[in-house]
Simulated assay, not measured.
Amino acid sequence: MPTFEGRFTNVSDLRIAVVVARFNDLVTSKLLSGCLDCLERHGIDTSASSKQLDIAWVPGSFELPIVAQRLASSANYQVVVTLGAVIRGDTPHFDVVVAESSKGISAVARETGIPIIFGVLTTDTMQQALERAGIKSNLGWSYALQALEMASLMTVLPPRKLS
């Protein structure tokens, strides 16, 4: 019985795209910093002239799926990380944005066959979001680890059958 697992080594040929929502950038910029720190510590070139990493900024979490789809469909990346923060307010807007961004991001992964990491914080308060973006721990680091593992895992899985 084969066991398939991703590894965190041999990242020299890995190309990663990160899509970051500008809305709540106090939080998302911290998530991005944690993500980049993890990638760099695992051997990814995160410099401004990097050939391994591209970063795209979008207005908000609702726009993450369309840009993730464009990047994943380009065949230039083995994995795409989406980073956003949706904080509950007094209106149902939170529910709409969370539902559509999560459905859209998962649809992109299924349609393209490229792993799309869902790094969208969904919290009730700004304090909770800040805690998850660095005050207590930085989930951006975890999203980067997921990206490395999934990119590696995809290389050892059996190939997709075209129907």
Rank of each mutant, 00 (worst) to 15 (best):
E63K: 02
R160M: 08
L145I: 05
L26V: 11
L64K: 02
S74R: 13
Q69E: 14
I87Y: 13
E149D: 13
L71V: 10
L71T: 07
I44G: 08
L83I: 00
N24F: 00
A99E: 13
P65V: 11
D37V: 04
V81L: 13
A56C: 15
L153K: 03
I66L: 14
A17H: 01
I116A: 06
E149I: 00
I87K: 03
L31T: 04
A68N: 05
L53I: 11
K136P: 01
S49Y: 08
L148Y: 01
L71S: 06
F94G: 07
N138S: 10
I44A: 03
V96H: 15
K136E: 11
L153F: 09
I114E: 05
G104D: 14
D45G: 09
L71Q: 04
W141Y: 14
S49L: 10
N76C: 14
S152N: 11
T125K: 01
A99H: 14
R88N: 11
F62D: 10
I114N: 02
V27C: 04
I117C: 04
Q146R: 07
D90Q: 11
K103D: 14
V108S: 14
A133H: 02
G119K: 01
G113T: 01
T112P: 11
R132M: 08
E40H: 12
V86C: 14
